[in-house]
Design a protein around this nucleic acid. Sequence first.
DNA 1: CGGTAATCTAGAACAAGTTTCAGAACTGAT
DNA 2: ATCAGTTCTGAAACTTGTTCTAGATTACCG
Lengths: 227, 227
Amino acid sequence: MGNMTTESKAARPTLPASPPLTERQEARRRRILHTSARLASRGGFDAVQMREVAESSGVALGTLYRYFPSKVHLLVATMQDQLQHMHETLRKRPPSEQDPGARVAQTLMRAFRALQREPHLADAMVRALTFADRSVSPEVDTVSRLTTAIILDAMAPPATPRHPAQDPAHPAAAPTPEQLSAVRVIEHTWHSALITWLSGRASIAQVKIDIETVCRLIDLTSPDRDD
Amino acid sequence: MGNMTTESKAARPTLPASPPLTERQEARRRRILHTSARLASRGGFDAVQMREVAESSGVALGTLYRYFPSKVHLLVATMQDQLQHMHETLRKRPPSEQDPGARVAQTLMRAFRALQREPHLADAMVRALTFADRSVSPEVDTVSRLTTAIILDAMAPPATPRHPAQDPAHPAAAPTPEQLSAVRVIEHTWHSALITWLSGRASIAQVKIDIETVCRLIDLTSPDRDD
DNA sequence: CGGTAATCTAGAACAAGTTTCAGAACTGAT
DNA sequence: ATCAGTTCTGAAACTTGTTCTAGATTACCG
């Protein structure tokens, strides 16, 4: 009877929305995500086993599934977590290049090098991301928006005297539709290139070439609007 | 360490190489692939259940696993099969456009429409493709080469009086490294855009835009060499 | 504080991919 | 036709993701 997905009221800890988690719940969630990343760093996607995640996080299996309704949900949430860190890190050291394409390429290569440091973790996260079905769409979409934000940040021209502060509520300039299309293509290339690397079909050098190719060939210049 | 491949002698029916299959074996293989595609067309990745594939193909489970060492292998082989059909179909009606980019876009959109006719099958194949780990690299690589071939075919200028026949052993002109890089980016975009569509995060229209964007922005023109 | 509902735990149970094994059927060579 | 080696079958076992259940714990509200 009460079998249908009772999620209308169930905790939805993935999004900071809905029911505000208690402190212990927040702590559980953190522990779970930490365990997930730790196991993933060791053996990639396969090494993240739900029973082990639960046990190692000091949580019952059922609870784990209440927090993350599937392994893919868990890993996508893990990626979200990691991406947030990376976004902050990248924000601190903005790219040094002048050309927007070069800036994006530089930023993505930095991210790529970070992923190379934990290739198994990268494997788990990216595999989960691309394997996710419709039931994970919202979470995957969040990851996608984060990635887009990173690229747009990189594209934005370095701070000028004219636009001294990067007030987050007042982005330097709203990207044009053409730029957004270009960013989509870059993002596609980024994801797919990562997959070819992770599955051993492309070398690190090849991924570098692909990223640089797409950033070079795609026109990212914005109309020289001077408001 | 790639040590596990003790199968140097095992049947490798995926590649027409190695041990030449007997007629009955070839028939079994066909039956399996056909069943796989049929089940996939119904319910996508999840509907392709190994027990059911085996039973419905009139083959023991162990035999299925001898032919295709995993579900992903099976689905990637299925994709290979379908792609070959599509390649022939596309070859018969070459794109009508003049500009190389437009030709590629037209061809990919044709392929995309074919996939839309069997969205579940597309789901199963693409999910398998991107989920494949290193143990499936050779097979995935074959699929990748097929895709590349389709794009290169589309790029090649329409037959001219000068180059009347498309003798497969004598391709119109060897693509330049720059062109190959461009094709890689297009292929990345193609795969990733498909994933966003299949996971319900991008509309058909959006995929169309992404494909047209990458084909428009990427320079595919070949140096005007006149041998 | 007491009660009620939601949450958490422990563990069994289920589902589907994968492996294994003993024996039957087939293949190729003599 | 026979023998040896491979392949195929049928069925069970194993693995890991996922679901379910009954009871303990916790959070919240009056």
